[in-house]
Design a protein around this nucleic acid. Structure first.
Lengths: 244, 244
DNA sequence: CGGCACGTTGATAGGGATCAACGAAGGTGG
DNA sequence: CCACCTTCGTTGATCCCTATCAACGTGCCG
């Protein structure tokens, strides 16, 4: 992967301090005097086009990536016979944590739409962490959060109906968008039905059908890929109790 | 949880250097001169009885635990309506990584049999990591490995048949036992059918039936909870291609 | 305009959940 | 030492959820 690196002396919105996502990303807990050093190791590659790969499975691991805008999907090639969507990454979320400690990336990461990322070369990050205790803590916390996210995903997948999974998925997205300062009720689904299906262990047709059911029940409204959650309570009941 | 702490001056097998699992656990990559400092922060509580809790969901997070012998299951209480088995921990594996960055433990951990653990108070560990670069690296790598394990679990759960899941589960255990120096073919299943079912998103009856099928096909042999894998190749084919 | 990716909807079949009964093993108390 | 109970595993019968195959509509892009 060849990336066009931009100069260090970009405009303010290209620095963490002026970034709208500062406060949600890895740099959150860094004190101001450390932020500068953190900023200095960040690369900001050119934006990814829809469908373009950020990293490819098997390729050497070098960097973490934080989504600045747009979104990503992480896909594992399972024995060369099909693709499994493991994660979606929304703005402020960090991709690549699962590759730490491995020489090679365990999965491919693709852009779901036009996507800007910040690149954090891991070697630099680690060196910096030697000096900055708060950065170390931030990294641990970030990985811990990722682990809890995976646990949640396992619970979603394990022995739940299609309705429970989809409701849980929508509520999870809602929470994540809300945490980064967006609406809890209305957001853009950049991923296809097939992507959602793979991620939830469902056939894409089932995703479509259940989505339709939710709309008819007045739980959600959809315009294209723009979703509006009309009843968080209703969805929560379904996610917990199961359909009906 | 009150634990009986043992003195610092125990026999050699209670130190990392003399431990049979050194080389598999967190302490693996520490140079000898750092090992001593690492050893100094470890507690070794009294062994857990079968069914006893090591930590309980919601309880303040204080420590990581490394399994020395025996095994653990990590269980999440889902909305108070049922329990979801998220992880099993075998000797040399580290429990508690998913709680890092949280004040409270996200799940309950129970002993599946008589189990000895090493307790690593996280505050001490973090302080020590300030001095020891290799310990920092070891922690990152450990968490990265955990993340990849969870990914694997998600792939196992997502849209696979009962046979594929169980075959994948057995092969995963085989690998983990082998990595710690035990037989790849023969090991003890400390968990019940219900535990396995919950972990794999299957009803316990299904686990029992598929196990029976595997036995009739000569893929595995069982004597009580002692399992022998008779054909890793056969199981691999099933895990990958699906039944038949 | 034609091709393609994507989403929707219908019909069908099958895998696994569920309910139920039963046997084996281990712990307990008399 | 044996009767009792509880936990665990096995096996059978039934039903339902969802995968699968299929057809069709839509919007987008070359």
């Amino acid at each position: 992967m060849t990336t066009v690196r931009q100069g260090r002396s970009g405009p303010a919105e290209l620095l963490c301090e002026g970034c709208s996502l500062h406060g949600a990303c890895l740099s959150r807990s860094l004190p101001l005097e450390e932020l500068e050093a953190f900023d200095a190791i960040i690369d900001r590659p050119r934006p990814l086009k829809r469908g373009e790969a950020l990293v490819r499975q098997g390729q050497p691991f070098t960097s973490l990536f934080v989504v600045r805008s747009g979104s990503l999907k992480q896909v594992i090639d399972v024995d060369g016979r099909y693709d499994q969507v493991v994660h979606f990454y929304l703005p402020s979320e960090t991709e690549g944590l699962d590759a730490i400690g491995e020489a090679r990336c365990p999965a491919t990461v693709l852009a779901l739409e036009r996507t800007f990322v910040c690149e954090l070369p891991f070697a630099h990050l680690e060196r910096l962490a030697t000096r900055l205790p708060s950065l170390r803590g931030a990294l641990y916390r970030c990985m811990g959060r990722e682990l809890r996210g995976d646990q949640r995903q396992v619970c979603l997948l394990s022995g739940r109906t299609a309705e429970q999974r989809l409701a849980g998925f929508l509520l999870g997205l809602s929470e994540r968008f809300h945490a980064r300062g967006c609406s809890r009720y209305r957001f853009h689904l950049a991923m296809s039905r097939a992507d959602i299906g793979s991620h939830l262990g469902l056939a894409l047709e089932t995703v479509s059908r259940v989505m339709g059911r939710f709309q008819r029940q007045g739980l959600v409204a959809m315009a294209g890929r723009e979703v509006t959650l009309r009843s968080l309570e209703g969805l929560t009941v379904i996610a917990e109790d199961g359909p009906r």
